[in-house]
Lab assay of single mutants.
Amino acid sequence: KSAVKALFDYKAQREDELTFTKSAIIQNVEKQDGGWWRGDYGGKKQLWFPSNYVEEMI
């Protein structure tokens, strides 16, 4: 599983989504079709976030 870095702040709209700030590192990313991926951040595990808010880390 990979890690991504947030390009923008994102505030969860639902309880199954992540809230994060710009430059946050989201771990254990599971990529899905449809523009939403799952990952771990801030003590939350495998919640959804919009993939267009992040960049992949190499």
Results as ranks from 00 to 15, higher is better:
K1S: 13
K1L: 13
S2A: 13
S2V: 15
A3P: 09
V4R: 02
V4T: 04
V4Y: 14
K5M: 11
K5W: 06
A6F: 01
A6S: 05
A6V: 05
L7C: 13
L7K: 11
L7A: 07
F8C: 15
F8Y: 14
F8I: 09
F8G: 07
D9K: 05
D9L: 03
D9V: 01
Y10C: 06
Y10V: 00
Y10A: 00
K11S: 13
K11F: 14
K11A: 12
A12I: 03
Q13M: 11
Q13V: 11
Q13P: 03
R14H: 11
E15W: 12
E15M: 10
E15P: 13
D16Q: 08
D16C: 15
D16T: 10
D16I: 09
D16H: 08
D16L: 07
E17W: 00
E17Y: 04
E17L: 00
E17P: 00
L18V: 01
L18Y: 03
L18S: 01
T19H: 04
T19Q: 06
T19G: 06
T19I: 02
F20V: 00
F20E: 00
F20Y: 02
F20L: 04
F20H: 01
T21H: 12
T21K: 13
T21N: 12
K22N: 06
K22C: 09
S23Y: 14
S23P: 00
A24Y: 02
A24D: 09
A24M: 06
A24K: 03
A24C: 12
I25L: 08
I25S: 03
I26R: 02
I26A: 02
N28P: 01
N28F: 06
N28Q: 07
N28Y: 05
N28R: 06
N28T: 00
N28C: 10
V29D: 03
V29G: 02
V29L: 02
V29N: 02
V29I: 07
E30N: 12
E30S: 14
K31S: 05
K31T: 07
K31G: 03
K31P: 06
Q32D: 10
D33F: 10
D33V: 11
D33P: 15
G34A: 07
G35A: 10
G35L: 11
G35P: 10
G35Q: 09
W36Q: 05
W36G: 01
W36P: 02
W37V: 02
W37R: 01
W37G: 02
W37K: 01
R38N: 03
R38V: 07
R38K: 12
R38H: 01
R38G: 01
G39L: 01
G39M: 00
G39C: 05
G39Y: 02
G39K: 00
G39W: 02
D40S: 03
D40K: 01
Y41G: 01
Y41D: 00
Y41E: 03
Y41P: 01
G42P: 02
G42D: 12
G42E: 10
G42M: 11
G43P: 07
G43Y: 07
K44C: 11
K44D: 10
K44N: 10
K44Y: 12
K44G: 12
K45E: 12
K45V: 15
K45L: 14
Q46P: 03
Q46D: 07
Q46C: 09
L47W: 05
L47I: 02
W48P: 01
W48D: 01
W48H: 05
W48E: 03
W48F: 10
W48S: 05
F49Y: 02
F49K: 03
F49W: 01
F49A: 01
P50N: 06
P50F: 04
P50K: 05
S51M: 11
S51Y: 07
N52M: 11
N52E: 13
N52L: 10
N52G: 11
Y53S: 07
Y53K: 07
Y53T: 09
Y53V: 11
V54F: 01
V54Y: 01
E55N: 07
E55D: 08
E55M: 12
E56G: 06
E56N: 08
E56P: 11
E56C: 13
M57E: 09
M57T: 10
M57I: 15
M57G: 08
M57C: 15
I58Y: 14
